[in-house]
Design a protein around this nucleic acid. Structure first.
Lengths: 329, 329
DNA sequence: ATGAAAGCGCTAACAG
DNA sequence: CTGTTAGCGCTTTCAT
């Protein structure tokens, strides 16, 4: 049996409610009494029973994160900083990795104050079940796919911006290296952005779309190796992810080609970790901290039942460095 | 406000407790009444309030997993299957990625029935805080480092077994490719196993220990590349992880060397995914499902406050395939 | 400033 | 078989 408010009340010789007040730092308790109670509570190793508390207060100060695809490493950096930020606002974060519907159920039963769904798969979410759960819910993924608010990094636009820039400085043979499968809607958005923009300019060729097996460095390395075997090399590369970019750079470094003289590079990137220091690669995307801020801000809003827009789109930034140059003629 | 047991009682014209019993499928309720209540509950979209329930039953049917190093991909496969298994036993699983102590606190406040700590770092865990939390706790990591039970995969022995085998078939120049840093006690165990066994046989040389940057394919690829530059090549390689092995194989495939004719390989491996089909690599380690079973079994035991051993060591298996042969003389 | 009492939603005796 | 009662640990009026 663990320590309850009663045990402390007994030890301090006061009533339960006084202890409750003292613990919540109410001004209705004398300082002396308060500090005495606090001391005893600490001695006893008292831990408030959230379960009992929330039964009356209807608040748990906890947000639940639904993360069905734990084995994909990409979003974990985001989750980590979101958790840190929420902690600053004195919210705890709990993760669930079951199927979306059953995770929601668990969180709803635990009376979390808000739910964040990482929707990085073509999940068949039972939206009715989610809505019925009665817990304010936010999505991270593609907007307008669900009946609840979604924070959406505009990946399509990001890649379009990259293409536009490369075209504007004269490139016509641009390759996209990334995940071309249709399993992950976020990756798909990038591909669509690339294809649209290339088609619009009438320069999309079959060889320009380079499939990778995954999103790791190694995948980028292998993909770039295959590109290097093409008869006519592209003059510019857009990479679908930070890790891919690292592998791509490695593959290039094993040839006599030089960036940006022979090849311009822009990487899609929202990750802050930067160990491409040797050569600053041009990047496009929304910086992670910006996403984190928006997500947490929105989460905090919805816990207060504030009504917010369904689609919260974050606009990407294009940061061009000396990894880009006009093609040699 | 959500639907409570009372609302259903009202609608069905029975008492709260009858509804409670019906919902828990008690035999003490007439079938007719029961089905009527169930029907109404379903119509209303009733969701039991676990918070209230556990306040009286002292059970949440939930286990909390403390996982402070979410960004390292390795253990996620384990967590995934543990979660699945627990679900079969009608337990929900919640993850926390904060610091160990504060995660424990959260779980303790939520009254989870058991806690599983993934201790894959040199964490400074405040053991007293954990013990005080009063929640049965299990560790996954290195045994005898904490005052609570630990499921420990005997990594040291695993690597020793691999070395022994290679020596037994005539190898004397054996390299270990893996994480040599001392940040992760689990990796360290493997290194110790290797060094001990090599020293015991008087064949440990400096070049035999090959450092990688991480545990990904790419790291293995790069490390093997560097090995291939050595003047005298080892005749056998022991790889520290599944992904490293993949990269190592790739690097070898780019040379004229053949496995096992020129090089024998044993990989440390507990992961079930097998896409090295083309060539079955010899492996040593404890299969993931076995770990999962032991962890879940133990978790279930401790929720019932059964007393169990502090150190639960799982013995590795060595599976030799045709990736190993005696060295050419 | 402190305590008594009521109640959050549910379960578990105990009566009927 | 069904209803009544008490109480889980905590917060929150409302008295004192």
């Amino acid at each position: 049996m663990s320590i309850t408010i009663k045990d402390i009340a007994n030890a301090a010789g006061v009533s339960d409610s006084t202890v409750s007040k003292a613990l919540r730092d109410s001004p209705l308790v004398q300082d002396k009494t308060k500090s005495n109670i606090l001391k005893i509570a600490h001695e006893f190793g008292y831990q408030p029973n959230v379960v009992a508390r929330s039964l009356v207060s209807k608040k748990t100060n906890t947000v639940g994160v639904v993360w069905p695809t734990i084995e994909r490493a990409t979003p974990s950096a985001l989750i980590t900083i979101i958790t840190e930020e929420l902690e600053k606002h004195s919210y705890s974060t709990l993760l669930a990795i079951n199927k979306v519907t059953s995770s929601i159920e668990t969180f709803s039963q635990f009376q979390v104050d808000a739910i964040l769904i990482f929707n990085d798969q073509k999940n068949e979410i039972n939206h009715r079940a989610v809505l019925r759960s009665n817990v304010p819910t936010l999505c991270y993924g593609i907007a307008n796919q669900s009946p609840y608010p979604t924070v959406d990094v505009n990946r399509r636009l990001a890649i379009q911006m990259a293409v536009q820039h490369l075209i504007s400085i004269g490139h016509t043979n641009i390759a996209y290296i990334g995940d071309l499968s249709k399993n992950d809607p976020m990756q798909e958005e990038k591909v669509i952005g690339f294809m649209q923009e290339m088609k619009k300019n009438g320069i999309l060729r079959f060889e320009n779309m380079v499939e990778t097996n995954g999103l790791d460095q190694y995948d980028g390395y292998l993909a770039m190796k295959s590109v290097l075997k093409q008869e006519v090399l592209p003059t510019a590369i857009i990479s679908g992810s930070y890790d891919l970019t690292k592998g791509i750079m490695k593959a290039i470094s094993e040839t006599k080609l030089r960036v940006p003289k022979d090849l311009s590079i822009i990487g899609y990137d929202i990750v802050p970790k930067r160990d491409l220091r040797d050569l600053e690669i041009s990047i496009v995307g929304v910086p992670l901290p910006k996403i984190k801020d928006k997500v947490v801000e929105t989460l905090l809003k919805i816990t207060g039942n504030q009504v917010i827009d369904l689609a919260i789109k974050l606009e990407p930034e294009l940061r061009i460095t000396n990894s880009c140059a006009s093609p040699r003629t």
